[in-house]
């Protein structure tokens, strides 16, 4: 049942991401709903299922973008895996911790995309103004994740309580 609801949510989010969100640009970037979803599923379930949800999100993202399929799958699967690995090591059941986790995973993803596709310099820690977007995107993701995680928490906790870590 949880997987079924997850798939419905995934479908809704991908449709919103590729149609509605383009018109909702904040600071000229849009929130990455599928990353938010993937991190949530990883943090809620475990690293193994987070990894599979990550693969699905990667396929979804690449379907509606010109991004390379293999790269998208690799990055999203890694994100789900990392989020899932934190289960049991942190108080990841709380929404706040999930949002903080999302911030760091988004930052990692931004760096990966930036280095591989945007040809940014690896010296991004030198506060180059061109690299400001690296922090903007995780910030926007976190802002959108708070209400989304609240709704998802309500839906999924009703379906099944948290798995014991």
């Amino acid at each position: 049942m949880e997987t079924f609801v997850g798939l419905i949510l995934f479908t809704i989010l991908i449709v919103i991401q590729s149609s509605l969100l383009v018109h909702l640009n904040i600071l000229s970037y849009m929130p990455e709903l599928l990353l938010i979803f993937c991190v949530y599923m990883g943090a809620r379930l475990n690293w193994y299922r987070g990894f599979w949800w990550g693969i699905l999100c990667g396929i979804g993202v690449s379907a509606f973008s010109v991004i390379d399929l293999r790269f998208a799958i690799a990055v999203f699967a890694l994100s789900g895996l990392i989020a899932g690995s934190f289960r049991g090591t942190l108080f990841v059941d709380s929404i706040g911790i999930k949002v903080i986790l999302l911030f760091f995973i988004s930052l990692l993803q931004a760096i990966l995309f930036g280095v591989f596709y945007k040809e940014i310099s690896l010296s991004f820690f030198s506060f180059n103004p061109a690299n400001k977007y690296l922090f903007k995107i995780p910030f926007i993701n976190c802002v959108f994740a708070i209400p989304l995680y609240y709704i998802m928490e309500k839906v999924f906790t009703k379906l099944s309580p948290y798995e014991k870590s």
């Binding site: 990455e32 993202v61 973008s65 991004i67």
Partner: peptide, 9 residues
């Protein structure tokens, strides 16, 4: 019919 789903492209 659709827009890019990422911030990167």
């Amino acid at each position: 019919i659709g827009r890019d789903a990422t911030n990167w492209y």
